[in-house]
Design a protein around this nucleic acid. Structure first.
Lengths: 338, 338
DNA sequence: AGTTTTTGTCGACACGCGTCGACAAGTAGT
DNA sequence: ACTACTTGTCGACGCGTGTCGACAAAAACT
């Protein structure tokens, strides 16, 4: 492994000149810089990361705290990770996945102080989130994917629930649907609450009725929801799902009962990771969840913050786009609900 | 952040004594060690990772190279990551997810040489894998999840295809099935090849016929496979799936055609990550893929290697267990294939 | 022409730790 | 009682950087 000293010798300059030529923190004559860069290339030199971290106090490493639920990292986390990781790499950082056991926040703090990590990305944010409070107190830079009830000036990237919901509702409206139902859980994460109220609002605007079907995050629950719908709300012509797992069970239920999607019933999913879309048949019409982009944004926002670009925008909302696939169709003229 | 010097002062010993008390690399009087440990606890001291890496040349960081496919990290990778990450943490290491762009192996080498990473975990191993050749030449310690055609003495953790297949086939045999079919892709990864031949072998032993249904890694392809089965092999009473995504489409197809699983047709999946199991209805009978354990094992094997425990076992096969859920049943007496 | 500012470079130092050699004190073997 | 080894501790050094202060040379002002 080539060191800075070797580069300096080859380029005929001092060691510090090499550093400055690379970092740009002091002005260097163009010709000298070129000589240095040539030597760097020739020796395939790359600064020793630990030495840099030691001397500069910067590790250029981000930790993505993944709440270790039952199955460890959640499925959707995958796309966030991919995006965050890619953006971090683009800016010379690394991303460590940190399956954080429960409330081991003090550990995070220690690692932040020991220079191991420069900042933290948080997922699955609750309305009230202890982790957020902790990190703020500990002065560890962080960015959220999701947001607390009152995020204030904290950095976050989140779904634009209102815009996403409107895209879906407006499309159903275009297709002629007037009586709809929606699948939602009532987890304390806040996503559901925000989604549900945005949906009711959007439906109201279009003068559509919207019945709520309560589900939990399981396929079987989606199937139960279909059965409930089938019995109680037979005039409903379209369903909006706010839970990805339940969606799949819901489709199974429809299949089982001989209800054809999309001919008899339209279905649109608003909270479905890419991986699930390709798993269903027919392919789901969705307002897609731009998780990759959100992950990217989270990294960028966090890095801006770490590097002291406080002036930059540090809160983002992503709506996603309507992607029409195979589960939506025009309402049938003879349907009761028309 | 407390430093070694502060601990030393508090404990009334020299700095190096603190190091030795913690590492155990030299004998320290029991009483002294206790005093040191007390001071460590009191100050909440943790060695500065970069300093350690600089001085000792050990970063205690593992990189998990995830082939960035179309969707980045693959779904199953999730469980591997969780397992590998947990095991690494247990042994004081960290796991960096490295979405490796194509053949940027030289980058890996550079980072390994620069002390950034101590070893590499590889996934989605092909029969002939350039990355493996590269790492061997570059002398970067690595462990595979999966294995090349001729792994020799290279470290790996892989599925025990023979045992896993036998568990499934034997169970179907117990249920009275004699004519089966199986879903497989023919990707070059080697998994499919090994699985297919193990299955044919196991079926032969039990004197069962086994028709192959070729699929690709898509839900719609699984649906097509069902239709093919329905038309061509109507006497088949059970299906073994070797591809998780196709499985879900297969079930949709059965629903669509009014074929009841498990009453009319049994289905058992051998290569399905946990996340997919909870997504299907009825819940899948599987020989589960112990991905979490495999991830753990990969980390442990790699760390053993890094730490020079060459004598330890560095190749493992995991079969998984038969988990009976809702997609298998006794063959129906009146079925043609009986 | 003299003074101040900017540009370009260098040497020195600190970051916090692992580890080597030295050495005093104790133990074991003759 | 002398040597030989072991135990327990310490001080010193080096790992490869980032960065600060110094300073000569050049440029920009009076």
């Amino acid at each position: 492994m080539a060191t800075r000293a070797e580069v300096a010798k080859l380029a005929g300059v001092s060691a510090s000149t090499v550093s400055y030529a690379l970092s740009g923190d002091r002005s260097i004559k163009e010709e000298t810089r070129k000589r240095v860069l040539k030597a760097v290339a020739q020796l395939n030199y790359r600064p020793h990361f630990a030495a840099g971290a030691l001397a500069g106090g910067k590790s250029k490493t981000l930790a993505l705290l993944s709440p270790s639920g039952e199955f460890g990292i959640a499925l959707i986390a995958l796309e966030y990770i991919n995006g965050a990781s890619a953006a971090a790499r683009d800016r010379g950082y690394h991303l460590v996945i940190w399956p954080s056991q429960e409330s081991e926040m003090s550990e995070i703090q220690t690692f932040a102080e020991s220079g191991m990590i420069s900042g933290v990305i948080l997922m699955e944010i609750k309305f009230k989130d202890d982790r957020v409070d902790y990190l703020k107190k500990a002065k560890v830079p962080f960015a959220m994917i999701g947001r607390t009830e009152n995020p204030g000036k904290d950095s976050y990237v989140d779904r634009d629930f209102i815009a996403a919901t409107q895209l879906g509702i407006d499309y159903l409206h275009t297709l002629g649907h007037k009586k709809i139902a929606f699948l939602t859980t009532d987890r304390a994460i806040g996503v559901d609450t925000r989604f549900s109220s945005a949906l009711l609002e959007a439906a109201k605007k279009k003068k559509m009725t919207a019945n709520k079907l309560q589900v939990v995050n399981e396929a079987s629950s989606g199937r139960d929801a279909f059965i409930e719908l089938h019995k109680k709300y037979s005039d409903v012509t379209a369903v909006v799902s706010l839970n990805d797992i339940a969606t799949l069970g819901f489709i199974s239920g429809a299949n089982e009962y001989g209800v054809n999607i999309p001919k008899d019933l339209s279905l649109i999913a608003l909270d479905t990771p890419k991986n699930h879309i390709e798993m269903s048949w027919p392919p789901l019409t969705t307002v897609n969840l731009p998780a990759y982009e959100m992950g990217r944004a989270a990294s960028n926002i966090l890095i801006d913050q770490i590097e002291g670009k406080e002036n930059k925008q540090n809160q983002e909302l992503h709506a996603g786009d309507l992607v029409i696939r195979g589960t939506t169709a025009k309402v049938r003229p003879q349907a009761k609900g028309n």
